[in-house]
Design a protein around this nucleic acid. Structure first.
Length: 472
DNA sequence: TTTTGAGTTGTTCGA
DNA sequence: GTCGAACAACTCAAA
């Protein structure tokens, strides 16, 4: 009898699951599947992994295990180096007189994962299937066969490529014949998602959110997505990060949503949202073709950052004295997520106002984001710092006050995340240091005591950054 | 090979 | 208050 190992990494779902589908095909009607998740020590101990994302992952494993059990299956969890662990499982299968049909896993394009997989493939019958991107790296190239490094042409080519593509969603199997005598660790239970993290893990929740977003949020997406005070975005990033949603299914569901409801706003919303999903693919492709971006500037030579540890501390704890920046940083630490505009704004503040190395910010974000993904996070940070592919021009420096006025006009976002500013009148909310002393007293918010004075003067910092980056 | 046009997300200043 | 231009120069994409 044949057995397929389904090695689960960041594809925690059963529907539209090409890896599981391949594993099933390889063993036929009578064969068995062994769904495995391996707790890999270097990943668990990585300085880029934080508790919130780990808790989300573990919760996702619990949810997947429950989904599997409903189909007569279960998840096997092991701990150890993946190569040895898989070899051990292969040995267990073969010593029981069964035939290993193959080890099936979704491709993972991050540098660590590629090295790991190459090593596994050397010794074991391992095949990567599918991709966490909608279109896999290599599928979108310039006519001369080299990868794109500018988003807009990539976007155009991506859309052409998608139009040549066909997709028929693979339904979740109703029953999965499973090898059930293999021993498994229990999923570590000590880590639970804090209640401040608004992302219940699991495929069912992911599907529910996708449907809800496509029914209601998509119509206002284009106008509300930049507003930090509204729930204008899809909030699907953690689910896409761990493959609780199939990225291909997301795209095709969204496209189908325009066709079935030809509402002008919905159409615009889907179009805008699709462009965001293409950014996700873009950075996955960039990291695949240029793995060096994880440690080095994509474009510019080394930059001699100021890297003041005190400035960095103030930034990461949310005590810069600029309310939107502080709201953003506290939202990150408490909820494990940050609004897209808040990410740009706080990244601009760290790299341009404080002249701190983007890698410091990148690592901090990775430690706290539930959706933290090496490709997207690195792409975003290098873009913000002006060192990346298709980077922001060096003179594009966000003004935290005007950005706040524009994208959090009533200060709801600030009041939500920076409670010491809760009673500050709207007129002063984005620049509280301008409050006259009697207003500070009335608002129970003394600047310098209850809430910090600005860490740097933005106008001065802007000039300093222009000068600094001008020289580079 | 050469040439031309374009490049996510902003801010400030002066008319 | 609104609007357009300047903020540079360079690399990339595509004809």
């Amino acid at each position: 009898m044949k057995v397929s190992i389904w090695w689960i990494r960041r594809d925690l779902r059963l529907s539209d699951q090409p890896v599981l589908d391949s594993a099933l095909r390889a063993v036929g009607e009578t064969g068995q599947i062994l769904p495995v998740f391996i707790l890999d020590p270097p990943l668990l101990n990585s300085p880029y992994l934080g508790e919130k994302r780990l808790a989300f992952l573990l919760g996702g494993l619990r949810a997947l295990d429950a989904d599997l059990r409903r189909r007569g299956s279960r998840l096997t969890v092991r701990h150890g180096p993946p190569g040895e662990t898989l070899a051990r499982l292969a040995w267990e299968i073969e010593s029981a007189g069964l035939e290993l049909a193959g080890i099936f896993a979704e491709a993972d394009h991050s540098p660590y994962a590629r090295q790991r997989d190459e090593r596994v493939a050397r010794d074991l019958p391992f095949q990567p299937v599918g991709s966490p991107a909608v279109l896999p790296p290599g599928a979108v190239l310039k006519p001369d066969g080299t990868p794109y490094t500018i988003y807009t042409p990539f976007n155009r080519a991506w859309k052409v490529r998608l139009s040549q593509d066909s997709h028929s969603s693979i339904p979740a199997p109703t029953h999965i014949n499973t090898l059930d005598w293999v021993t498994s660790l229990s999923i570590p239970a000590e880590l639970h998602l804090p209640s401040t993290v608004p992302f219940p893990p699991g495929e069912e929740e992911a599907q529910r959110r996708l449907n809800y977003f496509l029914e209601s949020g998509i119509r206002t997406y284009q106008v509300h997505r930049d507003r930090m005070d509204l729930d204008g975005t899809s909030c699907l990033s953690p689910y896409l990060r761990f493959g609780m949603l199939s990225p291909r299914q997301v795209v095709y569901t969204a496209l189908a949503a325009i066709e079935s409801a030809p509402d002008e706003n919905a159409g615009r919303g889907v179009e805008t949202w699709l462009n965001e999903l293409i950014w996700r693919d873009f950075y996955i492709h960039v990291l695949h073709h240029f793995p060096g971006v994880r440690s080095r500037n994509f474009r510019s030579k080394e930059i001699y950052w100021q890297n003041d540890p005190g400035d960095f501390d103030a930034w990461r704890e949310g005590y810069t004295g600029y309310p939107v920046v502080d709201a953003a940083m506290r939202q990150l630490c408490q909820s494990g997520w940050m609004h897209n505009r808040a990410r740009m704004l706080s990244a601009s503040f760290l790299t341009k106002d404080l002249l701190v190395d983007w890698r410091w910010g990148e690592r901090w974000f990775m430690q706290h984001l539930v959706d933290g993904d090496p490709a997207a996070n690195n792409g975003g940070w290098q873009w913000s710092a002006g060192t990346g592919t298709d980077a922001a021009p060096y003179f594009r420096i966000f003004n935290p006050v005007t950005q706040g006025l524009k994208f959090d006009p009533h200060g709801t976002y600030i009041r939500r995340w920076v409670p010491e500013l809760r009673h500050v009148p709207e007129t002063y909310l984005h620049a509280p240091w301008k409050m006259p002393i009697e207003v500070q007293r009335a608002a129970q918010c003394k600047i310098g005591t209850d809430y910090p004075a600005p860490l740097v003067d933005h106008a001065w910092a802007r000039e300093r950054a222009l000068d600094f980056f001008g020289k580079v």
